Amino acid sequence: MATSPLPSSARGQAASAFLQRYGVLIALALLLTFGALRYEGFLSPFNLFSVLAFNSMFGLVALGMAFVIMTGGIDLSVGSVAAFASVIAAMLSPHGLWLALLGAVGAATLLGLVNGLVIAYGRVLPFIATLAMLLGARGLALLFAGDQSVSVSYESGFTNFGQGKIGAVPYTAIVLAAAFVLGSVALRYTAFGRHILAVGGGEDAARLMGLKVERVKVLVYTLSGALAGLAGVILASQFGAGQPTEGLGWELTAIAAVVVGGTLLTGGMGSIGNTLVGVLLLGLIFNILNFENGKGTISLSNYWQSIIRGVFLLIVVVLQSQLTKRRS
């Protein structure tokens, strides 16, 4: 018995769903293919691991941002929190890696907790609360650092965290992979992950289900702060200094990676794995631009990266909006 073809509207919805779920993977595959064909050494372990090592900071920040956005929130403070954590880590680095790591991540976690409490119990909009924290954390970073970079200790082994390797694999790439594995497991297989999606899908409905919405919000912003703190430790150990003025625009990079991975800005739906793919896609785009600079084809300054991030984010948001409309 012959089956009737799907109506055009159903086919359009299926195509939109496919692109929203797998479009970022297709884009990454195309980008890797282009780079492999055009540049010598593009797919070499050295280049790929270098991209992973450099983008590990952005990946950790994007992971925290993904959980926040899935609840329907936003965290604009991640870059400033990471900069503050880098200063704390640099100041504690003479005492060894573990004290620097715990101190910096702990301080950043506290700032994330403040964000969560203000948003959940103070009923302040996430945009306003985290914008205030962006300014506050930046001020704290400059205050602690004395308005200058803070050199780290090279004798304590602190810099091995950001610069060390196991074979050809950087420690930071391992940390990034472990964080995303844990994040994916938490979202997919734990009650915490289900509660995040439920809150993002509708707070009133979540409350009717008996979920503690405020607690979920506090937890996701605290987690975002902790991951930004870990990114700050990597920043200090990778570049040899706490950077109070670093982190500008990191929130936009994180949002772009999360959105290009298919997570809705309205919350209620998202993918941790695709967020990682979004981070890698952005990282490889800038890696390709560096290769082009090396070939002499183009000559773009670092300022162009901000322009490209902005245009890329706008395009992705528009495409995501159109795909969502077609699915509905």
Results as ranks from 00 to 15, higher is better:
residue 33 T to S: 10
residue 58 F to C: 07
residue 48 L to E: 07
residue 47 N to D: 11
residue 52 L to H: 14
residue 61 V to T: 14
residue 47 N to L: 02
residue 40 E to T: 13
residue 54 F to A: 14
residue 78 V to E: 05
residue 76 L to F: 14
residue 45 P to K: 01
residue 34 F to G: 03
residue 33 T to A: 15
residue 62 A to M: 02
residue 58 F to N: 15
residue 68 V to G: 07
residue 41 G to I: 01
residue 44 S to Q: 12
residue 32 L to I: 00
residue 47 N to Q: 13
residue 69 I to W: 09
residue 50 S to T: 13
residue 79 G to A: 07
residue 68 V to T: 06
residue 67 F to N: 03
residue 44 S to H: 05
residue 59 G to Y: 00
residue 61 V to Q: 06
residue 70 M to P: 00
residue 46 F to M: 07
residue 49 F to E: 06
residue 42 F to L: 04
residue 76 L to V: 12
residue 53 A to G: 07
residue 75 D to E: 07
residue 63 L to A: 04
residue 45 P to A: 08
residue 74 I to D: 04
residue 65 M to D: 03
residue 31 L to T: 01
residue 80 S to V: 09
residue 62 A to N: 06
residue 66 A to E: 12
residue 77 S to H: 03
residue 66 A to L: 11
residue 62 A to K: 06
residue 57 M to Q: 15
residue 58 F to L: 08
residue 52 L to N: 03
residue 66 A to D: 08
residue 34 F to R: 00
residue 51 V to Y: 04
residue 75 D to C: 05
residue 70 M to D: 01
residue 42 F to W: 02
residue 39 Y to A: 04
residue 46 F to W: 03
residue 68 V to H: 09
residue 71 T to I: 02
residue 59 G to Q: 09
residue 36 A to D: 13
residue 79 G to Q: 07
residue 53 A to R: 15
residue 41 G to N: 10
residue 76 L to Y: 11
residue 33 T to K: 01
residue 36 A to Q: 11
residue 47 N to E: 10
residue 60 L to M: 15
residue 58 F to V: 07
residue 40 E to M: 05
residue 72 G to V: 06
residue 42 F to R: 08
residue 38 R to D: 00
residue 66 A to F: 11
residue 74 I to L: 10
residue 72 G to M: 14
residue 34 F to L: 10
residue 60 L to C: 10
residue 34 F to K: 01
residue 65 M to A: 13
residue 43 L to V: 13
residue 72 G to N: 06
residue 43 L to P: 01
residue 75 D to A: 12
residue 33 T to R: 01
residue 76 L to I: 14
residue 47 N to A: 08
residue 48 L to A: 13
residue 66 A to V: 11
residue 40 E to S: 09
residue 41 G to F: 00
residue 54 F to V: 14
residue 30 L to M: 13
residue 51 V to C: 10
residue 43 L to W: 05
residue 43 L to Q: 04
residue 72 G to C: 04
residue 49 F to W: 14
residue 43 L to S: 13
residue 66 A to S: 15
residue 41 G to L: 01
residue 46 F to L: 06
residue 67 F to V: 02
residue 40 E to K: 11
residue 36 A to M: 09
residue 49 F to K: 03
residue 78 V to M: 09
residue 54 F to W: 15
residue 80 S to G: 02
residue 54 F to Y: 14
residue 43 L to G: 01
residue 45 P to Q: 04
